[in-house]
Amino acid sequence: MTDTTGAVVKSESEIGGGLTPKEAKKRRMEQMTAEERGYLRRKALMEAVWPFFRFVILFGLGFVILYPLIYMVSCTFRERSDMTDPTVMWIPRHYTLKVLKETISAMDFWNTLKTTLLLNIGCSFVQVLSCAVTGYGFARFKFKGKGLLFGIVIMMILVPTQVIALPLYAQFRFFGIRGLFSINLIDTMWTMYLPAITGNGIRSGLMILIFRQFFRGLPKELEDAAYIDGCGPFMTFIRVMIPNAGSAFLTVFLFSVVWYWNDYYVSSTFFTNTQTVAKMLQNLDTQLKQRLFNSATIEISPREQIVWKEAGCLLSITPILALYVCLQKYFTEGIARSGITGI
């Protein structure tokens, strides 16, 4: 850094001097005032020391984040007796797949995974579409009451689900037209799908906001060209805007999948027998108690139970972690590029 900035400033006077870079630099240093030299020296020192500190900071904090994951893996593949063995810290003494298998059966993992994926992918998909359409409406059209309606979007971000969960439960329990008919939607997937289709699913307020910002950032000329060619607004949206919004769609979709995956509040409110992975993990304690710990033949101390809990954690984050590793770019760069940066 020192060289380049110096060179840019002073190089004109040096041209034709026929000096080697080292000599040129020396001469430049001589021409500087003490203040300038001090600045450059401090800067050089800072640049030498800082990477070391940066490494220490990042390494330490990175470890804080990775530590639970490493611990999870370590616990999953050890026997429960290793938990009470004080010599075992990270590397298990006895490797076994037993714990993993038992946890899979306790969580009924494959069926649960199937249900979760069905809910997750489907809901995320329809919700991304509905939120994109809504966001586009807010971004590009002027209509009466727009400010008020957008205020409602902000409210949707602010109001915690817990506040509206109770009446929503009642609404799904007696779904229909008052006095005519009502059906019980509790424990069906409609309780997740209906809000998602209409852009009211988990964190949809945030998604509408992201899409609004994104579409506002696209050049207006795109649409004007389409309008002049005789394309209506809806066709313009489908033919012109959607192809341009590919990465935004993917980013929001990924976040939506993550949010649905991790949600247990909404699903435990509306589902009684339908199981999702997050809900299963939440109730893992009870499941394990029923299936494993209650047997009279073996005694399992609370500390040993951790093995199964960690295995459950590992199971439930693996799919989403795999997604994250494969599409990391869209998670980390997508949000910054497509939208929300313009708050």
């Binding site: 809504t134 059209f141 609404q171 209906l194 809000p195 289709i197 209409t198 852009g199």
Partner: peptide, 13 residues
């Protein structure tokens, strides 16, 4: 464009 969302918001929010 926002009709679907308006209906949903009325019922679910």
């Amino acid at each position: 464009f926002i009709a679907l969302w308006m209906v949903g918001t009325l019922f679910f929010f």
